[in-house]
């Protein structure tokens, strides 16, 4: 028997999950959890509805808070994708949110839920890591921020406790930064990514001031190699440099093989799509 409790406060929600002792789960849009229930892959007695939480400032909103872009825990992927703020400040995140699942999933699923699910073949995690975003969680007593790159630890696994409620995502806003996300699908255009590439960069006088390249969908967690990208700092992002970074990433990655592509193919797609994402970023910097 599954019961559904609708929570008005974050503390209530956390308490409900804690009281469930492993049999209660947060549910926002429900797209992931209901699927697991239908497939009898999870045993859940209590669904803790968080859509109705009213005591978290900015729960349902996207707002600029100083030098941070805040996306509340109740915000759907469709809202992220359509937000002028996100499109302006973090276009790669708007792009990633706009290609998750389909229009129906994006209308129901929240960015917070997407993070908590930690699906390796979903688009936003790599982008959040590339933007150096923080995931803000409430544990019933207090809030804390965890860097996105420290959240994703394995396939469908995070460093968060099951009673940690994601109440929002904080994306740092950096002057002059540009970003891009490329989803590469190997079958239907509607497929989940075979490879996802998130790039975030800042340019100073035509040279790279900072560069992050994060690969999604190729292994359990978003993959990044700062030692490769840091070598670009201070240099112009010209074609040979982009090709070199792409080659190094292709060498560094240890891809899975699944129905969307073999390890060999994924490695090649990392090579091509890293280069193309860098070209995109370089072009947008020139604009």
């Amino acid at each position: 028997m599954v019961t559904f409790v609708r929570c008005a406060t974050a503390a209530d929600a956390v308490a409900a999950v804690r009281d469930g002792d492993g049999t209660a789960k947060f549910v926002g849009g429900g797209t992931a959890l209901v699927l697991l229930l239908q497939m009898r892959l999870v045993q859940v007695d209590t669904l803790v509805g968080v859509r109705t939480i009213g005591d978290v400032p900015g729960w349902s909103g996207i707002e600029q808070r100083g030098n941070v872009l805040w996306i509340g825990g109740g915000v759907t992927l469709a809202e992220v994708a359509g937000s002028a703020l996100v499109r302006g400040y973090a276009p790669s995140l708007a792009r990633a949110a706009s290609v998750v699942g389909n229009v129906r999933v994006r209308n129901a699923a929240t960015l917070a839920g997407n993070i908590a699910e930690a699906d390796y073949a979903s688009d936003p995690p790599a982008v959040l890591v590339s933007l150096d975003a923080s995931v803000v969680v409430h544990d019933g007593a207090r809030q804390r921020a965890v860097l996105a790159r420290d959240v994703f630890t394995d396939f469908y696994t995070t460093s968060l406790d099951e009673s940690d409620l994601v109440i929002g995502v904080a994306v740092p806003l950096v002057d002059g930064s540009v970003s891009a996300y490329r989803k590469f699908a190997s079958r239907s255009m509607e497929d989940r990514p075979c490879v996802g590439v998130a790039v975030s960069a800042r340019f100073e006088d035509g040279a790279v001031g900072a560069l992050e390249v994060v690969i999604g969908a190729v292994s359990g967690t978003p993959q990044r190699w700062p030692e490769i990208t840091e070598r670009a700092w201070g240099r112009r992002l010209a074609a040979p440099l982009m090709a070199t970074i792409a080659d190094r990433y292709a060498d560094a990655v240890d891809p899975i093989a699944d129905i969307r592509g073999s390890a060999w193919y994924r490695r090649e797609m990392v090579r091509v799509n890293v280069r193309r994402a860098l070209e995109e970023v370089a072009a947008s910097a020139d604009d």
Partner: peptide, 16 residues
């Protein structure tokens, strides 16, 4: 059968 669902066995969408 490794792909008995319409996510792992894909059919053309309007975009294909």
């Amino acid at each position: 059968v490794m792909n008995p669902n319409l996510s792992d066995y894909q059919i053309p969408s309007i975009l294909d």
